[in-house]
């Protein structure tokens, strides 16, 4: 029993560390990608290629003066970033980071908890994230913050519907809400165990999910909550020091988590092509699978940034139009088409 707790504790610490590191280096990657797309070189002074830049940024964040506005609600002002960070990190619990690792004959699964309702848990936790933004914006007692917060909540609630509907088609196909089972459903290989990734069966669903994920993470072209050009900084206008850092960190962790969810649901998670045909041992497959998973996550994180430095922001009415009158009908149509195909091919 103690070994079980030790193994879970190690896993929790490692996953926590990985998420923080990923968020840290996402800021570096973001600046590098932005620079490269704009034909610049980006941060390159702190360490070779500027890889110590996140550390320098972090130290700067900690050293900054902490300002809580006189008229702000002090409790909520502090609670806001904490909730944002907490909900961002909580979603990492159910992500299947890898398969089974067998050490001394004891199998260790590289996933903290495998809930039967894992997908619902992710959705629940991610939608709680809107409270962090809403509370922060409200507590600041600043009209720009409030505008940002209201926009954020309206946007997240609108896009959650389309996101949920786009997932329903996938759940119909796989028949499970457990993320591990969805990954196993896509297990690669040839012969009897050949399965394509879900994106092949659900291209429209994937596209809808991707667009909604962008909106949920408040990333460009849906970054209305913090649109710098019109709302100063949106919901974090009044924030300074590490509380601002928490919000920014939460955004990057959310990006990382949603990349992980997209990879899990549509791109096979820890599966990679021909994984069962190369004659590898179980542990080698697990390690390579985890590596493949992180490559997929890395690609999607890069994709988020790539899109950010390509597309301009939507106007607010366009955002709502896209959410309610394009994505939701398309998602419903996707559910109907999936159901129809399943009936016709006798896959129920």
């Amino acid at each position: 029993m103690t070994s079980f707790f030790i193994y879970k504790a190690i896993l929790v610490v490692v996953v926590f560390g990985i998420m923080l590191m990923a968020a840290m280096y996402s800021t570096y990657l973001e600046r590098k990608v932005a620079a490269f797309i704009q034909d610049r070189v980006g941060p390159n002074r702190a360490g070779p290629f500027g890889i110590l830049q996140p550390l320098a940024d972090g130290i700067k964040m900690f050293m900054k003066e902490e300002i809580i506005p006189e008229v702000a609600n002090k409790t909520l002002f502090i609670v806001g970033p904490c909730i944002a960070m907490l909900t961002a990190i909580m979603a990492g619990v159910v992500i299947p980071w890898g398969g089974e690792l067998v050490i001394n004959g004891v199998p260790y699964v590289l996933q903290i908890i495998d809930f039967d309702f894992g997908l619902l848990y992710v959705f629940g936790v991610v939608s709680l994230g809107v409270y962090g933004i809403m509370i922060g914006g409200w507590a600041s007692n600043n009209k720009f913050s409030l505008f940002g917060a209201i926009r954020a909540s309206a946007q997240m609630i609108s896009y959650e519907i389309a996101m949920g509907l786009s997932i329903i088609a996938l759940i119909m196909m796989t028949g499970t809400l457990s993320l591990r089972e969805i990954v196993e459903f896509q297990a690669g290989g040839t012969g009897s165990t050949w399965n394509f990734w879900n994106v092949v069966y659900q291209p429209l669903g994937f596209l809808l999910f991707l667009v909604c994920a962008f909106a949920e993470c408040n990333r460009t072209p849906f970054d209305l909550p913090e649109s710098e050009t019109e709302l100063v900084g949106g919901y974090h206008t009044e924030y300074s020091s590490m509380k601002l850092g928490f919000y920014l960190f939460a955004e990057y962790i959310n990006m990382f988590i949603s990349s992980a969810v997209i990879s899990t649901l549509y791109f096979g998670g820890t599966n990679f092509p021909f994984m069962n045909d190369l004659g590898l041992s179980q542990n080698a497959i697990t390690i390579l699978g985890t590596l493949a998973f992180f490559i997929k996550i890395g690609f999607f994180v890069f994709f988020y940034m790539w899109i950010r430095w390509t597309l301009p922001r939507f106007r607010y009415d366009q955002l709502m139009y896209l959410g309610w009158r394009v994505l939701i009908p398309l998602a419903i149509a996707n559910v109907a088409i999936t159901g129809l195909v399943m009936i016709l091919t006798d896959r129920i």
Partner: peptide, 15 residues
């Protein structure tokens, strides 16, 4: 749009 930005990603930098 993203193909244009991808091409810029590998362009020689002006810095």
């Amino acid at each position: 749009g993203i193909t244009i930005t991808l091409r810029h990603l590998f362009k020689r930098k002006a810095t």
